[in-house]
Design a binder for these strands. Structure first.
Length: 109
DNA sequence: GGGGTGACCCAGT
DNA sequence: TACTGGGCCACCC
């Protein structure tokens, strides 16, 4: 059975998850993909990045960084400024993932 | 139908 | 710590 779903559904799920990221916390593209993988079956960090680039304007995209703590290219200054304002500590140009990495609680769909 | 691109990730040097 | 190469998968021409 091909559980076909609208691409918009996956996009909505990504955006919804990003909106759930608490203040002062960050999440990596790969973590988001991994979180939605068991629910959609298809998740790749690259896709999440593409979706964020297109539809991220409606969500706190600055709370989404690479697994290395690197802020998205083209908006590094903005992302850093917003994160710092939320209490996120930086390690040079990178977020201290070890201290602010966040993950959704199991069952909290 | 075929090929290039990208807000990524991992491993090696 | 920084740079390079390969893999990945959906989207656009």
């Amino acid at each position: 059975m091909a559980d076909e779903y609208d691409p918009r559904d996956y996009i909505e799920a990504v955006l919804d998850l990003v909106e759930r990221i608490p203040v002062g916390r960050v999440m990596s593209y790969g973590a988001i993909a991994e979180c939605l993988a068991p629910r959609f079956g298809r998740g790749s960090a690259r896709r999440v990045g593409t979706i964020m680039a297109l539809y991220g304007g409606s969500v706190p995209w600055h709370r989404v960084v690479t697994v290395n703590g690197r802020t998205p290219p083209g908006h590094e200054a903005v992302a850093r400024q917003r994160l710092v304002a939320e209490g996120v500590t930086f390690r040079g140009e990178r977020v201290d993932m070890a201290a602010h990495a966040w993950s959704p609680e199991p069952g909290s769909a």
